[in-house]
Simulated assay, not measured.
Amino acid sequence: MKKNLSSLSDLAGAFGKAPIEHDNTNKVDDDSLVYSTESGRIQHKKAEVITASDGFAHVRRETKGRKGKGVVTISGLGLPSSELKTLAKKLKKTCGTGGTVVGETIEIQGDKREVIKEVLEKEGFKVKFIGG
């Protein structure tokens, strides 16, 4: 009686034991797990933290670290990142300039504080100018 045993389950079957069934549907979420042979690198979902607003949109003109170029930063809005991006897109379009969202602040190129104030007030924010 010569059989070709290619795996451990075949060997267990030869001795009359039932092969072990692995259930892959019951996966445990372990925060310390970095790599798994089943799924590769584990990407943990990070919860977005939104800082609460004090009721004012703080508009500030900055030039520090930008080689003298003026940038208007808007902070204190208390919005999630998706809504910040849509608001930044609207501000960039009305100002006719570039800009970006960094963390919880919106940066708009140039000195367009008055135009930004009008747009933010139409969106329902109270605007406070900070700095000179």
Results as ranks from 00 to 15, higher is better:
residue 1 M to W: 02
residue 2 K to I: 14
residue 4 N to T: 14
residue 9 S to P: 08
residue 10 D to M: 12
residue 13 G to A: 14
residue 13 G to N: 04
residue 14 A to L: 10
residue 16 G to W: 09
residue 18 A to Q: 12
residue 19 P to G: 15
residue 20 I to L: 12
residue 21 E to F: 13
residue 22 H to C: 08
residue 24 N to E: 15
residue 25 T to K: 11
residue 26 N to R: 13
residue 26 N to Q: 09
residue 27 K to V: 13
residue 28 V to W: 02
residue 29 D to L: 05
residue 32 S to G: 03
residue 38 E to S: 11
residue 40 G to W: 11
residue 41 R to Y: 15
residue 43 Q to V: 15
residue 44 H to Q: 13
residue 44 H to W: 12
residue 45 K to R: 13
residue 46 K to A: 11
residue 50 I to M: 00
residue 50 I to D: 00
residue 52 A to E: 15
residue 52 A to G: 13
residue 56 F to K: 13
residue 59 V to S: 05
residue 62 E to G: 01
residue 63 T to D: 02
residue 66 R to N: 10
residue 69 K to H: 08
residue 70 G to V: 15
residue 71 V to P: 00
residue 72 V to T: 15
residue 73 T to A: 03
residue 79 L to V: 07
residue 82 S to N: 11
residue 82 S to W: 15
residue 84 L to A: 02
residue 85 K to C: 03
residue 89 K to C: 05
residue 90 K to I: 06
residue 91 L to E: 06
residue 97 T to L: 01
residue 98 G to D: 06
residue 99 G to E: 00
residue 100 T to F: 01
residue 102 V to T: 10
residue 106 I to R: 02
residue 109 Q to V: 00
residue 111 D to S: 03
residue 114 E to R: 12
residue 116 I to C: 04
residue 119 V to S: 12
residue 120 L to I: 11
residue 121 E to D: 07
residue 121 E to R: 06
residue 122 K to G: 01
residue 124 G to K: 10
residue 126 K to N: 07
residue 127 V to I: 08
residue 127 V to Q: 10
residue 128 K to C: 09
residue 129 F to C: 08
residue 131 G to C: 14
